[in-house]
Write a protein that binds this DNA or RNA. Structure first.
Lengths: 193, 193
DNA sequence: TAAGGCATGTAAGACGTTACATGATTAC
DNA sequence: GTAATCATGTAACGTCTTACATGCCTTA
């Protein structure tokens, strides 16, 4: 992806997500797009200005969005909306990125760490697992909260996304409980929170 | 993390993972480290030479690993092993990165896509979900396979990691089945594969 | 001794991050 | 009218990626 002429149809996850937001929510300013990512429960992107502003210009160069100069007071403002080409690109991204995706096994930082936990003395392994359990219980609460705030009738897809977050969090919590049980033979299995 | 002097104790996930591998498996050449990542089921890193070779030198600069010049035939070869400092750093990374981690909600590319699935006509939504189900069933097989190949007695932590992969994959599969049922009212729920 | 692949790298570049800069608007 | 915050950017940089380069070393 570097030395070569860049394939014009290739799209990063963030580019696609921005395109998706613009397409779904209608005309956006870079600022509203940023807000969207800043408020999103997923910590994948920072929503930093340094990412978003250049990105939307990139999208415009590729004619996936089009901007019109609005104005709020005297301040100039760009309103971006998705083009037909953009919709096509989004559509293609949604459908084509699945099959050959590397998404078969998603990343879990806790799993990465688990691989090297043998480096710790037993007591610290316990600390690790306990801490992780604490974090995960809070995450579960958050996920439940988020799910409540995105009811199915409002936007079924947002609802499904929130379900995904909940199910993944539950799975990780279950895993941690399992690990603790296997390591320390306690009988808390299934208690959860 | 850019404009500022870099915090010497900061460590990227890949750096820590490499450090972990060197610490766990004993003296490594960059080549064996690469193999490790190339063979790993987790697609998070490519294990590219361009990443690994500079990285181990970076670790050596920071005195987290130390290299000795071995030789296979006349070919010079660097053998890296972890230092005491390296063990300390690894230890700290394992314990400290949890609490303030952004790992509370892990990323799922399918979830990202789900958010924008409203852009597709209904028929294509079905296609999307079906394709994803196919991918996920294969991923489930793979995860089960991997789990079998890392039995608990051999390395309990590797075993736990494989369990994590399996549970996460199951959760995603369950989620997709749920989505399909909600969208299309079919009664396949619970059938799975 | 030539071919192929093993092993070790380097080169160029895309992407996203943090931190800084700056004018407009609002609140007091 | 001054301070805070909104909104829009730019600057510098680190990490990782793909593609290329290059010698060693085995095997036929």
């Amino acid at each position: 992806m570097a030395r070569q002429k860049k394939d014009k149809t290739a799209t990063t996850e963030l580019e696609a997500a921005v395109l998706g937001v613009v397409g779904r929510d209608g005309p956006c300013t870079p600022y509203t797009i940023r807000q969207h990512f800043l408020e999103s429960p997923s910590p994948r992107w920072s929503g930093s200005a340094g990412a978003i502003y250049p990105l939307v210009r990139r999208l415009e160069t590729r004619k996936l969005v089009r901007s019109t100069a609005g104005a709020r007071g005297r301040r100039s403002q760009r309103n971006y909306r998705i083009t037909r080409r953009g919709r096509t690109a989004l559509n293609r991204w949604l459908l084509s990125s699945i099959a050959q995706s590397n998404a078969t096994l998603i990343d879990d930082p806790l799993r990465t760490r688990m691989l090297f936990l043998g480096a710790l003395p037993r007591g610290q392994v316990l600390t690790f697992v306990s801490d992780a359990l604490g974090v995960m219980r809070r995450a579960l609460h958050q996920a439940q909260q988020d799910l409540k705030e995105s009811p199915a009738p409002k936007d079924p897809f947002a609802h499904f996304a929130a379900r995904n977050a909940l199910l993944l969090t539950r799975a990780r919590l279950k895993w941690l409980v399992e690990v603790r049980a296997a390591q320390f033979g306690d009988s808390d299995v299934g208690k959860g929170t």
